[in-house]
Design a protein around this nucleic acid. Structure first.
Lengths: 224, 224
DNA sequence: ACCTGAACACCGTTCAAGT
DNA sequence: ACCTGAACACCGTTCAAGT
């Protein structure tokens, strides 16, 4: 019962799956995906690399578990809206912001199909799709489309943010640079990209993301 | 002018960026993303790992270049349909199939935001969005939504396929297994996933993908 | 200009040995 | 049961040295 209160150099709590996951999230957030190594993790936990394997199967397991922790918290924080549509928007936006804050979650989700974190999100979206009252046999396809959209756009946005950070730019500087590059593309080969270079400069990823969600929701509506 | 016709052990053509990319695609297709190493590539090209760095900046550059080669071919093979809607469907389906055939293209695309292959796809989709005749100031958001959807769903589908292959199952065995697992989920926590387990078993990823595209296209239509 | 291949600084993972 | 840390079999990348 009595914990050894002594030994400032030693760990205060014993190793556990949860502590390992917590430490992983901190490393992933501060040093990015490449920063998470078993050696770095072991050092932070004041142990050896081998010890971690007692609690975690391998690196992919570790990443999925860290990802699931973020997803679980995010979904918990999402409260239901007045309508299924509003709830779907809230869920989607919640995930978008979570992936933006933890870019590694984006790739972890795409690399873990069928795993717990994905099923969690799918379930929450699906319950709202059902509440929309669409035909039963379309539930799967509609929920899948929404899930894929959320993960797809969320991931792209996070990748963009990381690219900007890599180049040491903030969001608006980055958009400025990219917009300028696009406006100088070959007019014959890239007329469209050139023509939207302005919109690129001033756009708001978060709002565009929501616009896409609304597009899909409208599509569902139009189908009924 | 005269090529050395001799030396069966030696390379017939000298090293070039194109030959390196071609060999990379072959390795990626046959041995997967993890199979592509500079050592394996060097061996196939009958040279040393260092030689590759004369033509390629680094591994990320190599992956993007290989990805771009697939994308360029895929888009070239996509002929225009009777309507912008039909062309968008053809482009989307072409990319879906390409990512399905070359799963590594999915992750390469998500990891290379703003790079050539992405801009190529975006341009082609965008031209059709413009042809749809929607309001000019929505072009960016609509084209972005479509692009993200295509990459998102395509990537998810490819990841699923790889997961199935990892477990040594074919598509329908895999769906069978997953459907059964879902039907046994906790009814209180995962009511929706349980209820669509049947649809999961019989669904066709390709058709669901198209259904999502149509949903978005309908949403655009409803907005006008 | 282009290629060679040894060397460097890492990885994830295992496993005998300890407590 | 849980932890240690050296060791193994790899990586991507560099660079002096060659042609």
């Amino acid at each position: 019962m009595v914990k050894k209160a002594r030994g400032a150099q030693r760990r205060e709590e014993s190793l556990s799956r949860d502590r390992i996951i917590e430490a992983s999230i901190e490393i992933l957030d501060s040093r990015g995906e490449d920063g998470l190594t078993f050696r770095a993790l072991a050092e932070r936990l004041a142990t050896g690399p081998g010890a971690i394997y007692w609690h975690i199967a391998n690196k992919s397991d570790l990443l999925t578990a860290a990802c699931d922790a973020i997803v679980a918290r995010t979904l918990e924080a999402c409260v239901a809206g007045a309508t299924p549509q509003a709830t779907i928007r809230a869920l989607a936006l919640g995930m978008f912001d979570a992936i933006d804050a933890h870019p590694w979650v984006g790739s972890a989700l795409t690399d873990a199909p069928g795993h717990l974190p994905i099923v969690r999100i799918f379930e929450r979206i699906g319950q709202q799709v059902r509440a929309l009252g669409a035909a039963e046999d379309t539930h799967w396809a509609v929920a899948s489309a929404l899930l894929s959209y959320v993960l797809g756009v969320g991931g792209q946005n996070a990748a963009n943010g990381q690219l900007a950070r890599t180049r040491g730019l903030d969001r608006s500087d980055f958009l400025e640079t990219m917009s300028t590059a696009w406006s100088q593309l070959d007019p014959d080969e890239y007329p469209f990209a050139r023509s939207v270079a302005e919109q690129l400069r001033d756009h708001d990823d978060r709002m565009d993301f929501l616009a896409g969600i609304d597009l899909i929701l409208k599509g569902i509506d139009a189908k009924r």
